[in-house]
Amino acid sequence: MNKLLLLLPILFMTGCATKPTITPVSGESLRSIKTEKVAVKYTLATKRINYVETVYRVLWLETNTSSLNFSGIWSPDQDITGYVVSRMRQQGIRAESVYDVVNPSLVDSANRHLAQAIEHSAGDNPAIKGSKLIPKPTYFSSMPIDAEFSALSEALRSGGIRYLIELTAMDVNSDAPGYGLVTVHASPNVRVINLQTNKVIWTEQLFHHEPYQLGGDFKKLEENSISKTKEGLRAGINKIDFLSLWEIQ
């Protein structure tokens, strides 16, 4: 009985101590990412922002969900790619936006194809009707073989780029859980592609977020050409420690 009592707390502690697993680098060091020029691309598949709010109704709590389209006022991919490039440069990585290395129409074409492909492979998001969840990291572990990506990777190789760091998120999300808090977050899959060997050498799903005190009002994220949403995405990305992620400190 005493042994059983000892085992129980150990089992509970094991549950808490479980670390998220990071896909190991398959026989290839990521150290050269810090020394040679790498290209970066961030794609938002849907151009939508999903809201989940909890509203206090005195005797009960109400949860409302919504999904709105911002494609009419913002084309996010180039801007968010710029936020990631800026963060990586802060960390000493010689990052370049794909939009600065190749013709942007090649990037847009590859992004459109990627968005269609992952929307077909994604499962429904049970929390928000009509929205989808990004496919699991295993989906991103194989090299894309479509013509649009091939054209992009060929152009990047010609531009002297060996590694493409590709971040892909389904949509932007925002929660208002109460007390006036409003968070802006996204969960991109990140993969590092070696364009010389045509192999995905690292992939993992990340999460970046930024909390704001906006009185629980999502509309404040939308005003002034959704400036607060953009600010939240940039601030969240600025918290990602890419060097620790790839253990290349």
């Binding site: 919504s66 389209n69 911002f70 009419g72 006022i73 999502f218 939308e222 050409s225 959704i226």
Partner: peptide, 14 residues
């Protein structure tokens, strides 16, 4: 567009 977003917000569908 900016006026519409500032007054009402983003649309559900475009």
């Amino acid at each position: 567009k900016s006026d519409v977003v500032n007054m009402i917000g983003l649309p559900a569908k475009i």
